[in-house]
Amino acid sequence: MITGKVVFGLFIGLASGFAVGAGFVAFVTVLGVIPRLTQLTKTMQFIHYYEAAIIAGVVIGTWLGLQEVKLFWTKWLLVPIGLADGIFNGMLAAALTEVLNVFPILAKRMGIQEKVIYLMMALVLGKIIGSLFQWIYYVDL
């Protein structure tokens, strides 16, 4: 009886992990962040290692997130982690904006093809300032 329950539990855990993992990979693939990074750094040949990095990050992140581990390392380690976290999220956000195809239509409608960069900077500054506002001020309200 007990082993039956355990096996069933393991099965459910594995199945939900499959679904979430597949969803994550599909999301990252559709947005094309990894190809973009390899293109910027001209490191196409290492793409398999980047895959491994994503998988390792997901597995380790999942495990640590579900445990109550405390590492007692220096708090300054948080600065590079936060920065990397932000860059990755920023790339996801940019890719999402691009997939949605808003800019070409907006620029065409307004006849400002050459000034799209300025509209893009509006998004970038909006994200930075919105995020800073939230963490520094808004959470205290």
Partner: peptide
Amino acid sequence: KPLLIQIPYSFGLGIGMILFF
């Protein structure tokens, strides 16, 4: 308020978008 993560995170957001474009 772990600002030590959150402030670099916020600037990272912008850097990531600029890198992508």
